[in-house]
Every structure is written in C-alpha cells, then in structure tokens.
Amino acid sequence: MPSSPPPDVVLVILVGTLLLLILAGFITSIIFLYKQRHKAQQQEMTRLQEAYQRELLQSQIEIQNQTLQQIAQDLHDNIGQLLTVVTMRLNTLEDDVQEPDTQQAVQQTRDLVKTIIQEVRMLSKSLNQDVVGRFGLLPSLTHELERIERSGKIKTTLLTQGEPYSLGEKTEIVLLRMAQESLNNALKHARPRHLTLITDYRPDAFILTIADDGRGFDVEEAKARDLKQTGSGLYNLYHRSALLKGTCTITSQPGQGTQIEIRLPAKQPLISSPALVSS
C-alpha cells in the first residue's frame, strides 16, 4: 500500500504554488496596467502635438491674413484713391483739350485707368478675409474665378454639389487660401485653358476639387524635390489639409492636367480649438 506524502510536504507545495501564483499575478497585472498607461500617454502626446500644430497653423493664418488685409486695405485706400484722382484729372483734361487725337488718347488712358481701378478693387477683395466672413466660401471662390476669367484667356467653371453648409469662418479662410494657392500654381506653371472648381457638400465630408487642363507634372518627382528646388506650395496643401483633419490628393501626369482634391470632415476640429474661439 503506497504511503501518502507527509502533510508538511503538501503544505510546502501548496504554499510554494500559491506564492508563484501571486508572483505571476503581480507581474501580469503590472505589465497590463503599464501598457494601458503607456497607451494613454501616447494618445495624450499625439493629441497635444496635434493641438500644437493647429495652434501653429492658426498663428500662421492670422499673420498671413493680417498681412493680406493690410495690403488689401492699402490697395483700396491708397492706390484706389490715387487712381480715382487720376481719372478725375483725365476727365478735366479731356474737357480742356481741343484736338481730337489728344482727346481720344486721353479717353483711352482714362478707360485704362478705370480698368486698373476695377482690377485693384477685385484684387483687394480677393485678399480681404472679411469677404469670406461676410459672404462665405462659395461667393469668395466665385470672385476668384471671375478675377481669373477677366484676363480673357482662361475659361473657368464652378460646380456645386449638395446643399451648401458653413464649415466655419476660420476653416473657410484656410480653404480659400488653399484654393488661391492651387489656382495661382495652375496659372503660373500649367498654362491651362480651362479651370474647374467643384465644391461637394456631403453630409459627412466636404470636398473641394481644383482641376485644370494644363501641362501637368510628375507628382512623385515634385514631392521628392527638396525645399530649395521646389516651392512650399505642395507641402502647404498637404500640411494644411492634415491639420484640418482632412486629406489632400494631387493627381497629375505630364500633358494631362492636374486635379487637386481637398477632403475635409464636415465637422471641423479647428473651429472647436479654444485659441480660435478666443481669437
């Protein structure tokens, strides 16, 4: 008949097992809790970094807008006023001169100055952020396209899909600046005959598409260039889209035009930023 182990041995084994279990439990729980804390800390750091980037963007936008506002005001108040005075002088001069040839030259000059006044006013409006605040994104975009079309060389189209809603003044200013940057890039580099702007107001997202039928370019090659070789235009578009919690997709091929799609969530995080609200 086999003898049963002495009670001491059983007790030692039981206590030893219990201690090992406590040790395993301690290690498991401390590692598990640490992982949770680490994850929470990482999330907090990401959130802070994003908030910082948004603050930075906001400051950049503020500075840019103040500068543009100043230029717009100067254009309207100083140059505009001076040109008006020039027109008045030309009117007087037209009355004073008797020779038909000179009179015709004065009329032509006056018409030219009037065109310049209109151009300056349009440029002033385009630079002025209050226009976005007062009239909204769509009228501002329309104004931009009208300004381009006045050159007579480029046809423009603005298409709107969905029921327009406000994305908030700050976001709309950023969007307008991004659209202006894209349009200027197209005018400067692509030599297009037709520019198309599409605003797509979806329930969950807003999509702004800027398309041209110009020369196009190799997107990957442009992205690979360093800052000395290329401007900051593309970088700004990607960066600003990301900070607005959106995306920017640029599709282009040499000879096949360019399409820039800026997709933003309908609910904008930038609007809820305390710094923006306070500013």
Binding site: I27, I30, I31
Partner: peptide, 20 residues
C-alpha cells in the same frame, strides 16, 4: 518605472525583472 512611463514595454526591461 510605473509612474514615469519612460520605457516602451516593461517586460523588455532587464531592470524590471531584477526589481520584481
């Protein structure tokens, strides 16, 4: 170690096992 959250993973730190 637990409070400062300086390391990526506790179980990958020799000092964690030594201290435990």
């Amino acid at each position: 170690m637990f409070v400062d959250i300086k390391v990526e993973a506790l179980e990958q730190e020799a000092s964690f096992w030594i201290s435990t």
